[in-house]
Amino acid sequence: MNSRDLLLSTKLKNGDTSAYKELFDIYYMPLCIYSLKFNDSFQQSEDIVQEIFVKFWKEKLYLRLNGVIGPYLFKAVKNNTLMQLRKESKYIFEEIEEEVLKVLDDESIDMLTLEEDKKKLFKEVEGLPTKSKEVFKAIVLDGLKYKEVAEQFDISINTVKTHYSRALKQLRKSLKLIVFLLLI
């Protein structure tokens, strides 16, 4: 059992309201990110997580949880996110999504070879066709949205997608690194 959860749980049971904020500080962002693994909307993820917090406190669920708060929250987020998606009847490949989630949990970056890998990736990026390169850099390095890229280069969103797709296709061996680039 997680000792932090246990501590929080004890505080909550003793009516210590500072534990609410503490709980929020610890879990809010991770829960939203967890929800984002199933759906693609920041807004939706935040709504779902906020609702769960409200319910958690209103119904004093911590009284029933025996100190195991984290696992409960994550499970609730998953259920509610999936429920929401089903409501919207989007086309979801559930088995594949599950598989990806499993892989996501063991993701890590090898810091030792990072510098070398980065150099290699930059080299590969430079080797892309000009437009693909520009679009790729705008999306990955500058964090622009498709729409913003389209405006910047004065092309249609579909063309942006085409260029981006082409770049990803060519760089797909370096996907992990691209993710890391987004971090720095």
Binding site: M29, C32, I33, L36, K37, D40, F42, S45, I96, E97, E99, V100, V103, L104, E107, G143, L168, R172, L175, K176, I178, V179, L182, L183
Partner: peptide, 15 residues
């Protein structure tokens, strides 16, 4: 699956 993975991690970071 590689692409999905990339996208989900990136979304988490952006968030």
């Amino acid at each position: 699956t590689d692409y999905l993975r990339l996208h989900k991690i990136a979304q988490g970071i952006r968030f």
